[in-house]
Computed example of a mutant assay.
Amino acid sequence: MHWSSLTALALVAPSTALIRFGCSQLTVQRVDPLVNPGISPSPHLHQIIGGNAFNISMDPREDIGEKATCTTCQFSEDFSNYWTAVLFFRARNGSYHRVPQVPNIGFEGSNGGMTVYYMQDGLANYQQTSKVTAFKQGFRMLIGEASYRSKQQATRFRQITYTCLQDLGTRFPESMHFPTKPCPAGIMANVRFPTCWDGKNLDAPDHMSHMAYPESGTFESGGPCPASHPVRVPQLMYETIWDTSQFNEKEVWPEDGSQPFVWSMGDHTGFGSHGDYIFGWKGDSLQRAMDSACYVNCPTLKTQSVPAMNKCKYNEVLVDEPIDGWLDSIPGNPMEKMESK
């Protein structure tokens, strides 16, 4: 389905909540305050969006919705931080180049970043008839496993996928592995989080076990949450468009024709894709949005312009290392570490 179809449906959809918004880039560094708090540098490079209260440790006792002074997101009450790994292109000569991000349709002019969704029923159900409980201050979660390299492993997680873009409106089909052929308009990486919460823990040692998938069916089909995780929360989804089109000449791809893209943790398969989230909406703004007549946009939330999104920066350089231009290795040398095992 193309994004234009979703836009058209917005005109007829019931007045319950699905919000979609763009966020410009905040910083790209080898930092991971969720999995590796206080460690500099973290094992692999991440691209981060959201509020400028982001830091190396992200103390869960701090309310980042109050601490932050700006956000790279369209809804200016959202000071959450969202991040994923970074995509690299590996040329035939063995050198690497970071793949730039481009904005989604509707957010032209933003400095890369991602598109974020909070949904009551998922994109497959445009009716959006359910009620959900918004995340709480201090809440955080992770989906995906950076070390996974097989489809069998990755099936543990639902709907972490890729779309080979024929144009910026392409949404289907999706695959669990990297596209194997050049994609005319780039590769979209899709990350969808679980939607059932245990109702007690704001985090877990693995940053996952306080969350669960519906015990039957799917979020989109209205599948019930398991008794262990009875609280239905919004479906959080990231879309990141990586502009791989500038690396589509087959002459620079590997001689055997295999796909040349690799995540910053050294994953050539795509099965190691993952996303991190730390909640930071100000006050009860997210719950108000989920309870309101919001569809794509939301009149109950304050918005800011694209230039204002781009202006918000996290200027602290926590890890001073080259990440742009042609590099002999990916920051942190994940490929070398894998080969030495």
Rank of each mutant, 00 (worst) to 15 (best):
G222W: 15
I105H: 01
W242G: 01
P299T: 12
N111F: 13
T115Q: 15
Q101D: 09
S329K: 14
G332P: 05
W326M: 05
Q101C: 09
K151Q: 11
S24V: 06
E339R: 11
A227R: 09
A227N: 10
D206R: 02
R158A: 11
I39L: 10
S147G: 05
T84H: 05
N111P: 00
W281A: 01
G38H: 06
E62R: 10
T161E: 14
G217A: 14
S329L: 06
Q101Y: 08
A91N: 13
P60S: 11
S175V: 04
I323E: 09
E316I: 14
R232A: 08
V12N: 10
N315Q: 07
Y117R: 06
C23N: 05
C183M: 05
E316V: 15
T69C: 03
M208Q: 15
A227Y: 07
P37G: 00
T218Q: 10
T303E: 13
T269V: 01
V102C: 01
C298K: 01
K136M: 10
Q259R: 06
E77Q: 13
P103I: 06
C73Q: 01
L123Y: 12
H207W: 14
S147H: 12
Q120W: 08
D78H: 01
F193D: 04
F79G: 00
P37C: 03
V319C: 12
N315F: 04
Q127Y: 13
A91S: 15
D206Q: 03
F219Q: 07
Y82T: 00
S130D: 13
F88R: 03
I187N: 06
D198T: 08
V233F: 04
H210L: 07
W197Y: 09
D243H: 09
D328S: 13
E321R: 15
A10I: 01
D78R: 00
M176P: 00
P307Y: 15
P334L: 03
P226I: 12
G266A: 06
S209V: 09
H274I: 02
H268M: 02
G199K: 08
Y117K: 00
T27C: 05
A308L: 12
V116T: 05
G106W: 03
E77N: 05
N55M: 06
V31H: 07
T129Q: 10
